[in-house]
């Protein structure tokens, strides 16, 4: 029952047409990868579940900001605040971690699981470009749970203030730290999350690994800092604590550990840079 050559014109179209148009090269290819990754992170072009998950988490992350804005708008006392910018991430920490775990496992996990990486690397991009595009996509996605609620709250408070001018005089100073901490947390969580996700073969393991990497050190540090004063330095082993200290320093608040503020800035940058570098190296070695 060997089939002969496939009869022409039944399955196939007629002639072949070449392409003489522009080939836009590396930067365009990386941009395309970034856009597709970002879209697919939010489930666009995919099934319902990823959409519900991503947009659901963004909604939850917005809740404290919405409550604060409503209070600011209708509250009797002008300066009553339900949540302050420097403590916002403490409220939604779990949401940020869940969001990172879910999206990171998708962004690098599926290409590795399906073996698609080699197809990307056979395109006109360099080794680091793939990881950089994924990192940028996840960091951008994370803005939706970091920068978005914070800026919403900032402008909501402003609009709801009894005296907008006076509110701005005292609170405008918060805007740069809001942007700075949002950027740092997004990039660092994206890098750490993606790096961790590359080590897990299955999606569920990837999610669990990312959750564990953020939550276990967090819980351990929270537990032991009560026991001994020296133990508080363990906070440097916890990405969440490093980001928290960084945020507090930016907002001119006092972190739990009595060290010069530059240490916390350096620690945060070191985390982001190390995770990003490891991620790019790791992807290079996987084809």
């Amino acid at each position: 029952m060997t089939a002969g050559p496939v009869p022409r014109g039944t399955i196939y179209d007629l002639g072949y047409e070449g392409y003489d148009g522009p080939r836009q090269g590396r930067r365009y290819a990386v941009w395309s990868l970034y856009v597709l990754s970002l879209r697919s992170a939010f489930g666009l072009g995919r099934g319902a579940l990823p959409k519900v998950l991503a947009f659901g988490l963004v909604t939850v992350a917005l809740i404290p900001a919405l409550i604060q804005v409503i209070i600011a708008a209708i509250g009797p006392e002008e300066d009553f605040s339900f949540v302050q910018p420097h403590e916002y991430y403490d409220f939604i920490q779990v949401v940020i971690i869940l969001f990172t775990a879910a999206l990171a496992s998708d962004l690098v996990g599926s290409d590795r699981r399906f073996g698609t990486l080699v197809l990307y690397f056979s395109r006109p991009i360099r080794w680091a470009d793939y990881g950089a595009a994924k990192l940028a996509a996840l960091a951008t996605g994370l803005f939706a749970v970091t920068l978005l609620p914070q800026t919403l709250m900032f402008f909501g408070n402003w609009l709801g203030a009894a005296d907008a001018w006076r509110w701005a005089e005292t609170n405008a100073v918060d805007f740069a730290p809001i942007v700075g901490s949002g950027l740092m947390i997004s990039v660092t969580f994206a890098a750490v999350g993606l790096l961790t996700a590359t080590y897990a073969a299955r999606r569920a393991f990837a999610i669990i690994s990312v959750l564990a990497l953020f939550l276990i050190p967090f819980i351990v540090v929270e537990a032991i800092t009560d026991i001994s004063d020296d133990a508080k330095y363990a906070a440097f082993a916890s990405p969440v604590h490093v980001m928290r200290s960084f945020t507090l320093v930016l907002f001119n608040e006092v972190p739990a550990i009595d060290l010069p503020w530059g240490v916390f800035i350096l620690a945060a940058f070191a985390y982001a840079a190390a995770a990003a570098a490891l991620l790019l190296t790791r992807l290079r070695n996987s084809v």
């Binding site: 080939r23 836009q24 365009y28 290819a29 395309s32 399906f114």
Partner: peptide, 26 residues
């Protein structure tokens, strides 16, 4: 490549179009 390399959760057209863009096509 020889081995499996296709994302299961995308449609063939979305994937192939994406790959054409990755090759630099507008």
């Amino acid at each position: 490549p020889e081995h499996e390399c296709l994302p299961a959760d995308l449609s063939a057209v979305d994937f192939v179009v994406h790959m054409a863009r990755m090759s630099g096509l507008p």
